[in-house]
């Protein structure tokens, strides 16, 4: 199996390049892309990539596999390999630190902007802040995000304006707290999203939806935010 790898070591390389590696895959097994990377690293330990839980929970090994972002650990080779070839590149649009490792600072900065925590200035009840099952249900499809950055780095609006457009991952989290019945900062949160860039650079092309390894729908969440802004403004 031919695997083409994006290689870049800023200490020795003047520019990134693609390296073709021939990997012998064990017969009769459908390996995950991460397993194949591990096989490559056994031969060449200079190959750099992030990984941790190897089961799609930690969100470390987001990368671009044959042109589509996803988590290497839960992407089977049978699903991604075309014409007997696999091309692995770092997540697009973010600065490359080395090989498949990208600098996620901008991504986290946008995440930070949406205040991804519960704000409630009322005195806490003795036991806990209760939610009705219906209110709790509103958070389904929002809280599951693992911040792997597959969606935001698949979004052209985020590529063009990563400093001003919050991006699908951040906006999904923004709505996760806007929709929380226990949060008391909705007005403040909306006021921070009202400019022409933060939310409105979304053109609804739904790349985020098509790549999300957890099957979430940031475009839908962005639509909900737009509706909240509309209600606030009219």
């Amino acid at each position: 199996m031919l695997v083409s790898l994006y290689r870049y070591n800023p200490e020795t390389d003047s520019a990134p390049y693609m390296q073709d590696v021939d990997v012998e895959l064990p017969a009769g097994k459908d390996l995950m892309v991460l397993d194949v990377l591990n096989l490559i690293k056994e031969k060449d330990e200079s190959m750099a990539y992030r990984r941790s839980c190897r089961e799609g929970v930690c969100g470390s090994d987001g990368m671009n596999m044959n042109g589509k972002n996803g988590l290497a650990c839960i992407t089977p080779m049978s699903q991604v390999v075309k014409n007997d070839k696999l091309v692995l590149r770092p997540l697009p649009g973010l600065p490359v630190i080395r090989d498949l490792v990208v600098d996620m600072s901008l991504f986290y900065k946008q995440y930070e902007k949406v205040m991804p925590y519960l704000v409630n200035d009322q005195p806490a009840p003795a036991m806990e802040r209760l939610q009705s099952p219906e209110d709790r249900e509103k958070l389904d499809g929002l809280y599951e995000c693992i911040l792997c950055a597959c969606c935001s780095t698949a979004c052209p609006s985020f590529w063009w304006n990563p400093d001003k457009f919050i991006g699908p991952a951040g906006l999904l989290q923004a709505y996760r707290f806007l929709a929380d019945s226990r949060d008391t900062a909705q007005a403040e949160r909306l006021a921070d999203l009202d400019d022409p860039f933060s939310v409105f650079r979304c053109r609804g092309i739904m790349n985020c939806v098509s790549v999300c390894p957890k099957g979430l729908n940031p475009t839908k969440a962005i639509g909900h935010i737009r509706n909240l802004l509309l209600h606030r403004a009219t």
């Binding site: 009202d194 400019d195 022409p196 737009r226 802004l229 509309l230 403004a233």
Partner: peptide
């Protein structure tokens, strides 16, 4: 945090969007 521009037609993102 949000940044508004002076050259867009509306005063903010939602106004541009409605227009």
């Amino acid at each position: 945090m949000g940044m508004n521009s002076v050259t867009n037609i509306g005063r903010n993102g939602i106004q541009d969007w409605i227009i």
